[in-house]
Amino acid sequence: MTRLDRRAALGAVVLAAAALAGCTATAAPAPTPTPTRATSGAHASSRDIAVGDCLDDAAAGSTTATAAIVPCSEPHDSEAFAEVTLSGDSYPGLDAVQAESQTACQGDAFANFVGIAAADSSLQVSYYYPTEDSWAAGDRTVTCTVYALDASGKAARTTGTLKDSGR
Rank of each mutant, 00 (worst) to 15 (best):
Asp77His: 07
Gly52Pro: 14
Ala68Gly: 14
Pro71Gln: 07
Ser45Asn: 14
Ala80Phe: 02
Ala68Asp: 11
Pro75Ser: 10
Glu100Phe: 06
Val70Pro: 06
Gln106Ile: 12
Asp95Tyr: 03
His76Thr: 01
Glu100Gln: 15
Thr103Tyr: 03
Ser46His: 05
Asp77Met: 01
Arg47Gly: 06
Leu94Tyr: 05
Ala60Ile: 03
Ala82Arg: 06
Pro92Phe: 04
Ala58Pro: 08
Val97Gly: 00
Ala58Cys: 14
Ser87Ile: 07
Ser90Asn: 09
Asp77Tyr: 00
Ser45Gly: 07
Gln98Ser: 13
Ala59Lys: 14
Ala80Glu: 05
Gly52Ser: 08
Ser101Met: 12
Ala60His: 07
Gln106Gly: 15
Ala68Val: 03
Ala99Glu: 02
Ala67Arg: 14
Ile49Asp: 00
Ala96Phe: 11
Ala96Asn: 02
Gln102Ala: 14
Tyr91Thr: 08
Ser101Asn: 08
Thr85Gly: 12
Cys54Val: 09
Asp53Val: 05
Ser62Val: 13
Gly93Val: 00
Gly93Leu: 01
Ala68Met: 09
Ala96Arg: 07
Asp57Met: 06
Asp56Thr: 03
Asp77Asn: 10
Ala60Gly: 10
Cys54Lys: 01
Leu55His: 01
Gln106Cys: 14
Ala104Ser: 11
Gln98Pro: 05
Phe81Ala: 11
Ala60Ser: 14
Ala65Cys: 05
Gln102Gly: 12
Asp56Lys: 01
Gly88Tyr: 09
Glu74Gln: 15
Asp57His: 00
Val84Lys: 06
Ala82Trp: 01
Thr63Ala: 15
Ser62Gln: 14
Val97Lys: 01
Gln102Asn: 11
Thr103Ser: 09
Ser87Gly: 14
Gly61Val: 07
Asp53Tyr: 04
Leu94Met: 07
Thr63Cys: 04
Ala58Arg: 14
Ser101Tyr: 12
Ala65Met: 09
Gly88Ala: 07
Gly52Ala: 08
Ala50Asn: 04
Glu74Asn: 06
Val97Met: 02
Gly107Cys: 05
Tyr91Gly: 15
Ala104Asp: 03
Gln102Thr: 15
Arg47Met: 08
Ile69Glu: 01
Ala65Ser: 15
Asp95Phe: 08
Cys54Ile: 09
Ala59Tyr: 05
Ala59Thr: 09
Leu94Asn: 10
Ile49Glu: 00
